[in-house]
Each structure stands twice: as C-alpha cells, then as structure tokens.
C-alpha cells in the first residue's frame, strides 16, 4: 500500500504518515473545492434516501388490504404501518443527523410566520421535539414562483451560527423541484442572543412540474434541531 497510516489504540486518531497522497493538490483551493464536491455528494445521498423512503411508503400504501381494514381486523395491520413509518422516520433522521455536528447546550425554537405561507406543527415521534412544517397557503402553478417566510429565534444568551442547507422537494412519482430552484435568504447568518431572524425561502416551480405535494427537509448544517419541512402544493 502506498500510504500507510497510523492509528491509536482506540482507532480514533489518525494522521497520514505519507504526504504523497496529497501530491498535486493546490493547498489554497483544496478546501473550497473539496467542501463543494463533498456537499454535492452528501446532498445527492440525502435526496436519494428521502426518495427511497417516499417510494417505500407509496408501496406500503398500495399493499394495504382495504377489505381487511374495513372488516375490523385492522389493528395488527395498522400497528405494522405505524412501526414501518417510525422506521422510515428513523432512517431519515439518522441520515440527516450524521451530516451535522450536534451542538449541545443550545435550546432553540423555530417559529414560522405567515407571509405567502402558513405554518403547521407536526409531531416527531422519534426525537421528542417537534419538526415544524411550513406550507404555501395557496397552491402554486407550474412555472410560477412562491415565497415562504420562517422566523428563527435564539432563546439563549449565546450567539448562534446558522447555516441552512436546502434540499430538493420530492413530489409525486419521485418528481422533484431541484435544490437549484430554491433560494434561501439569508442562508448563513449569526443569530444574536435573544433575537429573531426572518428567513425567506423562494421556490421557482419548473414549468414541467407535475401537480401534487412536494416536500423536503431544510436543516442547519451544525445543529439538527434547527430544521423545518417545507411543503409546496403545485397545481396545473
């Protein structure tokens, strides 16, 4: 092997013993390039996992025996569906949580305000806190744009760095509104102690977008508790 590496007894700390591995990389540009490429890669993985969960849920819906549900033997079936749904949320949250370093000691809340959008709260059965959902008040037509405004508040006495990660919105038949069609403003900012900050989410719906409900999870890069599900209803 061209690059031998050392490891500590617990295997946790390692440093390259051979710099040859990095030969040819411009040190000034490497971090930016690497960060950009890895961010792209992680976004792709997240989108695919989310799409897989949605596809699984659709299949689950298809295999529900309606007659059995109506006949009164529904409890076992419903238990199974509840369990599977929780599993799906587990998978989703786990995939998201590994992208961020969990910041302890901060208790933040996310609030939503209504501009063109209306806020709804949805219980999160896994983590014990609520992942809020923001949804456009009126459905938007394919080819048009819409805005949703959320408000973040920092209830702590320490400043809070926020860097929101946007995600593609996944809709019917795995159709997507790509992340590039979404603008978050501001996307990165510092929230002073005991202050609030409005964040605008502008979504341009592609002309070829199929009607239906599109959703995606927007999350802070460092603190997974700062997150919201954005739902956009698209009509013809």
């Amino acid at each position: 092997m061209k690059d031998s590496r050392t490891s500590s007894s617990n295997g946790n700390k390692r440093k390259p013993s051979d710099k040859k591995w990095f030969t040819g990389i411009d040190p000034n540009g490497v971090m930016n390039n690497a960060q950009r490429i890895l961010n792209t890669a992680v976004e792709v993985l997240e989108e695919e996992i989310a799409a897989g969960i949605l596809a699984a849920k659709k299949i689950e819906k298809k295999v529900i025996d309606v007659d059995e549900v109506r006949s009164g033997n529904a409890e076992e079936l419903m238990s199974r569906i509840r369990r599977d749904t929780h599993d799906a949320v587990d998978i989703f949250l786990d995939a998201l949580s590994v992208i961020a370093n969990y910041v302890n000691g901060l208790s933040e809340t996310i609030e939503k305000t209504k501009k063109n959008g209306v806020a709804k709260e949805a219980p999160n059965p896994v983590s014990g806190y609520q992942v809020p959902t923001v949804k456009n008040d009126l459905p938007v037509k394919a080819g048009e744009s819409m805005d949703i405004t959320i408000e973040l508040s920092n209830d702590n006495e320490k400043p809070m760095e926020v860097s929101l990660r946007k995600a593609a919105l996944v809709g019917p038949d795995e159709n997507k509104i790509a992340a590039k069609n979404i603008i978050i403003s501001p996307q990165t900012f510092t929230l002073k102690p005991l202050s609030k900050q409005k964040v605008h989410i502008a979504v341009k719906v592609p002309v070829i977008c199929k009607p239906g409900s599109y959703s995606g999870l927007f999350i802070d890069n460092k603190n997974t508790r700062i997150c919201t599900v954005v739902v956009v209803d698209v009509i013809k």
Partner: peptide, 15 residues
C-alpha cells in the same frame, strides 16, 4: 482530485 476528496471523506467517516 475528486477521488482523493472522496477517499478522505471516507476515512473521516471510518474514524
């Protein structure tokens, strides 16, 4: 370079 970035990220994940 991209392959090296990915391998670096994999090493980090391994740790």
């Amino acid at each position: 370079k991209v392959a090296k970035y990915m391998a670096g990220a994999a090493l980090k994940e391994f740790c």
